[in-house]
Amino acid sequence: MLGWRLLVSATLIPLLFGLFYLDQRAGSSAPWLLGLCWLLILRGTWEITQLLTVRNLKPGYPLVCLLSLLICNAAWLPWLVPSLQTGANDPQTLSLALLSVTYAISVLLLFLKNAIRFQEPGQTMEILGAELLGVSYVGFLLAMLAELRWVAGPQTGYLALGALIISAKLGDVGGYTFGRLWGKKKLVPRLSPGKTWMGGFGAIFGASLGAWLWLQFTPPLFNDSWSAPAWYWSILFGAIIGVVGLVGDLCESLIKRDVGKKDSAELLPGFGGLLDLLDSPLYAGPVAFLLWKLLPLVTVAS
């Protein structure tokens, strides 16, 4: 199983970065990334609504999917409509504002829909909660993850997005490898019986190594005036992403365990569903965005 996981990761990551290469050449509007986000939302909202269709939870897939797409598209508007970038408007500030407002409106619409459909006590709040979770987990967090495309500048954003993906996925690989080889003491046995303390250390190690390798060698590829940051900033970034990604994995386990499922869906043997692949990056996306704003993760040549 370890070999299969490594093989799938070694296949998917180059394909993803190939798409990023095409998207980089297409300009700051990032059309390829937008298309990928649409596909992920279509599949991800289906998985989470199916996952949550238990007990009194009956979230509606069409509305959760539609609102998630609206949130994602709203975040893209400043990059798709050049006229919105004129004057004092910073495109990413406007993008974040539109993302937040559209998410707030989505919450209001979900409340309105459930208020209109209310018939008797005992089910409405459960449905509303499941739909809010679906829109928040897939729509909002995925749009926030995509904001890393522009956090370091419109033409160089894949440095940041790539750093997160490499860190999060090598953290997953490191956690799985260390856990299988040396893991004994369980980390959170009731929630995720397969997670061990040694696996947690492996996740931090793998994410730190991935961040250091990525930030050490790739900045000049994105911008000629950029060079690698100090090694300790790269490792700090990776270590934090490793911890946060591990927590994200546990949080998705919380959803699955509470509804009595092992995987979010049956998409890839050994991995589960799409949400099982995205759990760490989705959870770590907002933290990575903040770290890129706070840490000197690139050095500008004088």
Rank of each mutant, 00 (worst) to 15 (best):
G44H: 00
G272N: 08
G44C: 00
I165W: 08
G129T: 01
I166V: 13
L295N: 07
S29K: 06
L254F: 06
D249M: 09
V247M: 06
L164E: 05
R149T: 12
L268H: 04
V173C: 15
Y232A: 13
L181Q: 12
A146N: 08
G202S: 03
L7C: 14
S83C: 11
I240R: 05
L42T: 09
R5M: 13
L34A: 15
T11N: 08
A97K: 14
L15W: 10
A30F: 03
M198L: 15
L42Y: 15
L57S: 12
K186D: 12
I116V: 14
G270D: 03
V64N: 10
G270S: 02
L51Y: 04
S100W: 01
N223I: 08
L164R: 01
L6A: 14
W212G: 07
G171C: 02
L69T: 02
L80T: 07
Y158H: 05
D276Y: 01
D276P: 04
T124A: 12
A74N: 03
K184I: 09
L128A: 11
R257S: 00
F201I: 11
L84Y: 06
V244Y: 06
F289A: 15
S95D: 05
L39M: 10
L159Y: 05
F17D: 02
G206D: 03
L99P: 00
G206L: 05
L22Y: 14
G153Y: 15
S106I: 08
K186S: 09
L128K: 04
L291I: 06
T156C: 13
Q155N: 15
K186A: 12
E120A: 15
A230E: 10
A104F: 12
V243I: 13
S225R: 15
P62K: 01
A75P: 01
L66G: 06
P229M: 13
L170T: 08
L213K: 10
A30G: 07
E120R: 14
Q216V: 09
L142Y: 04
L94T: 00
L148T: 14
L145P: 01
C72N: 11
I105P: 02
